[in-house]
Simulated assay, not measured.
Amino acid sequence: MIGIGIAGAIALVISILFTPYLIKLFSRQGFGQEIREEGPQGHKSKRGTPTMGGVAIMVAMWVGYLGSYGVNMLMGRDESPTASGWLVMMLTTGLGLVGFLDDFIKIRKQRNLGLNKTAKLVGQLVVGVTFAILALQFVDENGLSPASPNLSFIRDISFISFGTVGFVVFCYGIIGAWSNAVNFTDGLDGLAGGSAAMVFGTYVVICFWQLRNDCSAVLGPACYDTRDPLDLAIVAASAMGACIGFLWWNAAPAKIFMGDTGSLALGGLVAGLSMMTRTELLMIVIGGIFVVEMMSVIVQIGVFQLTKKRVFRMAPFHHHFELAGWAETTVIIRFWLLGGVCAMFGLGLFYSEWLAASGAG
C-alpha cells in the first residue's frame, strides 16, 4: 500500500520537472494555442501559449505508475500491475492520442478546429469499444472481470444488466460523455487540472477503502466486489500527482495548456475509474463540476435551437461568469471550491452507504 504514496510522489515530481522542458520545446516549434474568435475578448492575449501539455500529464502518470511497482520490487514486495490498471492506463493514453492529433491539426492549420466531429468520434469509438470488450475479459479466480456489465452506483445494481453488447454501447457512451465533459471544463487556466486532481484524490480514498473491505477477504453485505482496488488506487494517485505537478505551470497565468491531449485523456480516466470501481452513477456526483459544465453547453444549444435565445451569456458555464465581470482567477477558485464540495459530498455518500450496509450506522 506504500506504493500509492510512491506513485503520487513520483508523478508529481516528474510532472513539475518535465513540463518546463515541454514549454521550451513547444515554444521553439511554434506549438501555440489558437483562440476561438467568439470567445471572451480577454482570452485573445493567450494566443500562442504552448499547448498539448497533456503529454506531461500522461508521461508523469506512466512513470509514477510503473515507478511505484519498480520501487516495490526493489523493496522485495510481491506486487505487480494488473489487468484493471493496464486497461485504465491504456484507455487514458488512447484518448490522449486522439486529443494529440486534434491539437496538432489545430496548430498546423492555424485554426481553433482540429479533427472534425466524425474523425474525433471514430477515434473515441475505437478506443472506447476496445476498452469495453477487454474490460469484460481477464476473469480472476473469484470470477470477477475488471468491469461489470451491470449498472452501478456504489456497488453493482444487480437487476440492471446491459449484457455484453449493451455494455459495450454503454461504455462508449460513458467514455464519450466524460471525455467531452472534461474537455468543456478546460477553458480557464488550471480549471480542469485542479478539478480533476480532486476527483482522482477522492478515488484514491475510495479504492483504498474497497481494498480494506474486499469481498475476497471480508465477508458480508458491506464488502466490495471489485477487481484490483490497490492497482486502481495507484493509478488514481499517479493521476492526482501528475495533475498537481502540471498545475504548477498551468495555474493562472498559464505557461502551458493541457489541450485536448490532456482533457480527453483525463476524461477517459474518469470514465475508466468509475467503471472499474463499480461507481458509475456516483461519479456524476464526485465529478459534478464537469457535469455542470457539459450540461450548460447542452442546455445552451438546445434552448437556442428551439427559441433562438441564450440561457447563458456564453457556454460552457465558466464563460458566463467571465462575461458577467468576474475575474478569471475568481471564477477558477470558486469553481474549484464547487468541485471540492462535489467530491466531498460523493465521498460522504460512499461512506454513508458502507455504514448502512455494515449496520454500523
Rank of each mutant, 00 (worst) to 15 (best):
G3H: 07
A7Q: 03
A11S: 14
L12N: 06
L12K: 06
L12W: 01
S15F: 00
S15R: 06
Y21S: 15
Q29S: 04
F31D: 00
G32W: 05
I35Q: 08
R36V: 02
E38N: 05
K46P: 02
K46S: 09
K46C: 07
R47F: 00
T49K: 02
G53Q: 05
G54M: 09
G54D: 00
A56I: 06
I57W: 01
A60L: 09
M61S: 07
W62N: 12
W62R: 06
W62E: 11
Y65S: 11
Y65M: 09
S68F: 09
Y69A: 10
G70Y: 08
G70Q: 07
G70I: 11
N72A: 15
N72T: 06
G76R: 09
R77N: 03
P81A: 07
A83I: 05
W86E: 11
W86C: 13
M90P: 00
L91Q: 07
L91Y: 01
V98E: 04
V98R: 07
L101P: 00
D102W: 06
D102V: 09
I105S: 03
R108M: 08
Q110N: 13
N112G: 08
L113Q: 15
T118V: 14
A119L: 13
K120N: 04
L121N: 05
L121D: 00
V126N: 06
V126D: 10
V127A: 12
V127L: 11
T130E: 03
F131D: 08
F131A: 11
I133L: 14
L134Y: 01
Q137P: 00
Q137I: 04
F138N: 07
V139F: 01
E141W: 00
P146M: 14
L151Y: 04
F153R: 14
R155M: 09
S158P: 00
I160M: 13
V169I: 15
V169D: 01
G173K: 12
W178T: 15
S179M: 03
N180Q: 13
V182Y: 04
N183F: 05
A192K: 03
G193R: 05
A196I: 10
V199I: 15
V199A: 10
F200N: 10
T202I: 14
Y203Q: 10
V204Q: 04
V205Q: 03
C207Y: 01
F208Y: 07
F208N: 03
C215L: 12
A222D: 09
L232F: 08
L232V: 15
V235S: 05
M240H: 01
F246W: 03
W248T: 13
A251M: 03
A252Y: 06
M258P: 01
G262L: 07
A265V: 01
G268H: 10
S274P: 03
M276P: 01
M276H: 12
M276T: 14
M276D: 02
T277W: 00
E280T: 15
L281S: 03
M283G: 02
I284P: 00
F290V: 14
V291S: 05
S296N: 03
I301G: 01
T307G: 06
P316W: 13
H318E: 08
A324I: 01
T329Y: 02
T329L: 04
T330S: 14
L337G: 14
F345V: 15
G348P: 11
E353Y: 11
L355W: 08
A356R: 15
A356Q: 11
G361K: 04
